[in-house]
Amino acid sequence: MSGGPVVDVTGLWTVYGDLVVHRDLDFSVMPGEVVALVGGSGSGKTTLLRQMLGLERPQRGSIRVFGVPLHTCDAGLFKKIRKRWGVLFQQGALYSALSVFDNIALPLRELHAFDADFIRDIVMVKLDAVGMDKRHASTMPADLSGGMIKRVALARALVLEPELVFLDEPTAGLDPDSSEAFVKLVRDLHIKLNFTVVMATHDLDTLVSVSDRIAVLADQKVVVCGPLDEVVRHEHPFIRDFFLGERGRRALSAAPALQTN
């Protein structure tokens, strides 16, 4: 990574039958940034995220991650890239048949590079890093609360020390307290480990408190991508409704960058 963007999407088209989801969309993320993707329901946030993960293939355009075009590179290179990113799915996507410990240990075991003792130590470090009690190591995912599922999923996403982390709705389904705690955790880990974050979110508080830049998806493209104060000044009906509605004002009033307004 020599200064170039970590994620670089250019000229992206996504079409489902007659429905155009993305029309000539451009989007990029620089190293160490936290970029939030916002947009109404059906604006194609999740689709874009899935395309950046290589789970879906766009009709046209290129997606480069770490400078490598995802959809045209060979399988070996793609596999290496997949070890360099971590993904937190919206519902956590913990493997329901495995305990918390085994969920986090799975990616490490797949490397076939470390012995069981070493893996156990690393899993304990990761559990500790996301603020989970070690007593929960042998718990099954079905017995965890929503907040704990997110934490375990985050630990699993971070276990291979990724340089890039994708978060899909990190606070969806959490109560305000655990949502705030989770956002703080992500922010702290980001400061400590300096990974790049791309997240799709609806949650204004999350946006305000962690993101460096915000990309607004509307009209099938990224209408604006910049720091919060720049985005808020942009004239677009969606932005006006989203940020300057009552809920938006309340969240923005907490943002230090905007206190001068």
Binding site: R120, D121, M124, V125, L127, D128, A129, K134, S138, K192
Partner: peptide, 15 residues
């Protein structure tokens, strides 16, 4: 420093 800090705080509990 933080990496060793993490190792120190997370002492593996032997079940």
């Amino acid at each position: 420093e933080i990496f060793f800090g993490a190792c120190e705080t997370a002492e593996a509990v032997a079940s």
